[in-house]
Design a protein around this nucleic acid. Structure first.
Lengths: 220, 220
DNA sequence: TATATACGATACTCTGGAGTTCCGGATCTT
DNA sequence: AAGATCCGGAACTCCAGAGTATCGTATATA
């Protein structure tokens, strides 16, 4: 999917590598171009983004880009899909013993900035989800699902150790924070800061799971 | 805001109407053009929408449109803003005596279709919120806020009559359903049907407010 | 009636950007 | 060495669509 035209001779025997002549394609440029595309996408949105911007940002020629992706749309789809791989959300899930501790521990400066950026990209990408439904799936898989999955795993663990009831609607609740972060970034254009995330945890998630508010007034 | 250039002689005494010569502008065409713009917007998105499409849909000339709005962007902003006026969400808020009854009563076929269409428009409009922050406000005010306000009023009443605790985070909770509907329509591209809305009410809102699930298994 | 503006319809201009082609130089296979 | 393909860079073609201008007609004021 990354380099769509690398498998062009599907007729030749699979054991015989095509062994094409000439200079080899520099595969290390692929991720650099995709990263540049994501940067421009986050800054200007899909409509404002031009291939020249991406080429300039990646210090590449336009021909190099069109040699690897057939169109602007496919480049963007690929760039969004590749976010999923280098995300690192699932690594090192916290384990503090309480669900609230785990959820709070997920709030790190890095993950806040990363999240802000991802939803910025989502805003730029939503421009063309009407024409490319596959892009909606890619964006969902790369941006929303990692967070939802992390939430689901934390809640599942809490359920297994009896901290929350067995009949909680974990699947629905795991989507609450991603959805409300998206609304805050896309429409309200407010920052996703620590206080907002804590208000989601203490005002929505934990109450919905039957865990009472921990500190009504957190002293200084 | 609807006809930006109708007040062009701000110097003349306000009691003396300009009394311009020539044929008068047909004001009844304004809402027809705005409605056509919303239709095209919902179908094709901002990028795919052309002024010719809007003109054809409204059976109007392009000049007629440009005589009233200076650009495509301003037309769209106005169209979205005008949704807020003819929405009818706030009228006839249900009053069944219980919060769950009220929330369920809000689920009517009409409001479901209307909501689906509004969030479709929101998808089309998100394309340019990067360039026009005012459009983000307009979309928020026209699409999300009416629903959030209705939710907030219902919860406030429940709080006043003691059905739910006084320290509930009503402001945050009122945004849960609009945010999750948006995610479902925009990214998941699934229909917003009755079952989904009920799962939000019984799986998130009511538990978060401390109201136990009413029927674990709703018999036939 | 004379003038001025709005109307729908059509033709027109103009610009930005997608996608293509060519260049000189580098790197590969044979 | 020779031929083929890559590279970054730049010039190029091509077109959809925003915005403008014009025309014949309708409706307003003076």
């Amino acid at each position: 999917m990354i380099a769509p035209d690398q498998a062009q001779h599907s007729v030749v025997p699979p054991n015989e590598i095509p062994a094409r002549l000439g200079r080899k394609r520099d595969l290390s440029r692929d991720p650099e171009i995709l990263a540049a595309a994501l940067e421009v996408l986050a800054e200007t949105g899909y409509t404002g983004m031009t291939i020249d911007m991406v080429a300039a940002r990646a210090k590449a020629g336009k021909a190099t880009i069109y040699r690897r992706w057939p169109s602007k749309a496919e480049l963007v789809i690929d760039a969004v899909a590749c976010m999923k791989k280098n995300d690192g959300t699932a690594d090192a899930l916290p384990d503090t013993g309480t669900l609230r501790g785990d959820l709070i521990a997920m709030i790190k400066p890095h993950s806040i900035n990363d999240g802000q950026r991802k939803f910025q990209i989502m805003a730029g990408v939503l421009a063309m989800i009407g024409q490319a439904p596959e892009l909606a799936e890619a964006a969902n898989a790369a941006i929303v699902q990692p967070r939802a999955t992390a939430n689901r795993m934390l809640m599942q663990r809490a359920q297994d150790r009896g901290e929350i009831a067995a009949d909680c609607d974990i699947d629905t609740l795991s989507l609450v924070t991603p959805s409300m972060i998206a609304h805050r970034v896309l429409l309200l254009r407010k920052p996703v800061d620590r206080d907002f995330l804590i208000s989601l945890i203490d005002g929505v998630l934990l109450p919905a799971l039957g865990i009472p508010a921990p500190k009504p007034t957190p002293g200084p």
